[in-house]
Structure formats: C-alpha cells, structure tokens
Write a protein that binds this DNA or RNA. Structure first.
Length: 268
DNA sequence: ATGGCTAACAACGTTAGA
C-alpha cells in the first residue's frame, strides 16, 4: 500500500500549529516528522493534532531548542531515541509502524547546524556537527541492512553542487563545505542509504528545501539549499514512487517556516 | 550582498539558527 510521509523543519510547532494542521489536511500524510519543535514534551500540542486525525504521537522535545516529533495516523508499535555525542539534546527519534509488508522504522534527525566558522579547531559547534556525523556513521555501519528503514530530517548539509544556489559561493559556508559533505557521504555509505530525492530529480537540476528569512523576496532570489533529506535502506531502495519539495508551503502565511516540507510516497 | 530575519526566554538583550 502507498505510505505517505512528510518531513518538515517547523521552526517552533507552537507558533506554527495552524500551518501543521493545514499541511495534514491538505496532504493527508500517514506520518509527519517534524524538527525544531522548540518545546518540551508536555508543551507539544498533541491534543489538537490528535483531533486533526493524528492520535499516535511520539515527541522528543526539550526546552527552547531543537526537538523532533512524529505524528501518525496509524499506531506506533515501537519508538525510541538515541543521544548523540553524549548530549541529551533531542536530535533523534525513531518510530516503527506496522505495514502490510512488515514493520518499517523511520528515523527522524535534526543534525547540528554547526555555527558560522567551518573549522572544528576554533568552532566547537562545527566540531560537534562533525562528531555527530561520525557517530551516525558508526551506528549505521552496525545496522542490519535487510531491515526496512527510512532516515528523514534536517541534516543541515546540502551535499551536491546543485543542492545550493551557488556551489562556488558556498564552498566555505557551513552546510556545503567539502569536509561536511565528506562526513555526510560516509554516513550515507555506512548504511547503504539511497537518496530518495535524487532518485527522482537528476543531479544536474537545482533542488532546495530551505530559503533564508533574510532575503527580501525568498522565491524571486531563490538562493536555496537542500538541507532536508529522505534516505531509504537497501530493502526500500525501490519503494519511493513519488517525492517532491512542497515549495509553496515555504510561502504559507502567516509566519512560514524557513524550510519547505518534503513529501514522499512509498510502496510498503 | 550570505545576511538584510526569526524564535525562545523569566525576556527588552542574548543565544541560536544556517
């Protein structure tokens, strides 16, 4: 059956609850994975999301920053979270759903942004980002590759040249530096993950999921980056029938998130 | 001309995003 999945960096779920409800109403996903919910578990607007038809919710939040949440139409049969880099900073959760073809586990990530200076020796945030990616690599290399698993979320790296508006101008900008891309590539290779977005959009076409708030007209300037991703385990490598960046949602008023959701349909 | 903006907080300036 077709499983509809959306990943979205919401940049405060409390401030943008109406946008979340509109997205659920318009796109009717089976599962929505949110990042940067910026609230503690007991502040998550679960009752209103349940009332919208999504009563199965697993939240991993904390005060003020980061935080991820999964909201599902269908029962979550298993859920958990992993602390990376010895910090309990709410950057990962997993949920497992029972589908016709057996269980499917979705990992929802919010990788550290990494600060401004792309040098781990002088910027502790960048160091944290690289260490986080190394830990992902170690973990993925131990995973059973025959399992049906999906990685989604804001990985905060735009790996390909056409994942940014100007490869040349962003080579020294955090999110597109060669060292970050190498780290992300290693994590991807360690799990034999397939990049579902690039299965459907050729590498020579521009593809973005994030546009800065600072542009006067984000859509006209179109200086975007592909920071959000959907990865498929080898067992699901051919499962994605359709995937698209919901670019219009970046313009939803009032107060859009600076990330657009990524919508995927998987045959499970 | 990649920061021109945006969000949370015991909160009117700081920290963080990317």
């Amino acid at each position: 059956m077709t499983f509809k999945l959306i990943t979205w960096n919401i940049n405060s779920v409390r401030l943008r609850l109406d946008l979340v409800k509109r997205l659920l109403e318009e796109y009717q996903p089976d599962l929505l994975c949110l990042q940067e919910i910026k609230c503690q578990n007991d502040q998550f607007p679960g009752a209103e999301i349940a009332a919208a038809g999504y009563p199965h919710i697993h939240v991993r939040g904390q005060k003020a920053y980061h935080g991820v949440a999964a909201v599902s139409r269908h029962p979550i049969v298993d859920a958990g979270q992993r602390a990376f880099c010895g910090k309990d900073d709410a950057r990962h959760q997993h949920v497992t759903l029972e589908q016709n073809g057996g269980p499917v586990t979705v990992h929802n990530f919010y990788v550290p942004a990494g600060g401004d200076e792309p040098d781990p020796a002088i910027n502790e945030k960048f160091d944290h980002k690289l260490k986080f990616l190394n830990e992902m690599t170690d973990w993925f290399s131990q995973m059973t590759k025959t399992r049906r698993e999906v990685v989604v979320g804001d990985l905060n790296i735009a790996p390909l040249e056409n994942d940014v508006w100007s490869h040349k101008q962003l080579l020294k900008v955090v999110s597109h530096t060669p060292i970050e891309v190498e780290h992300l590539d290693r994590a991807m290779a360690a799990g034999n993950w397939h990049d579902a977005m690039r299965q459907h959009v050729p590498a020579d076409e521009k593809l973005y999921t994030w546009w800065s708030y600072r542009a006067k007209d984000w859509s006209a300037a179109d200086k975007g980056r592909r920071l959000d991703h959907v990865w498929l385990s080898p067992a699901l490598g051919g499962a994605c029938q359709k995937i698209e960046v919901l670019r219009d949602v970046r313009g939803w008023e009032p107060k859009p998130s600076d990330h657009a959701p990524v919508y995927a349909e998987l045959e499970l």
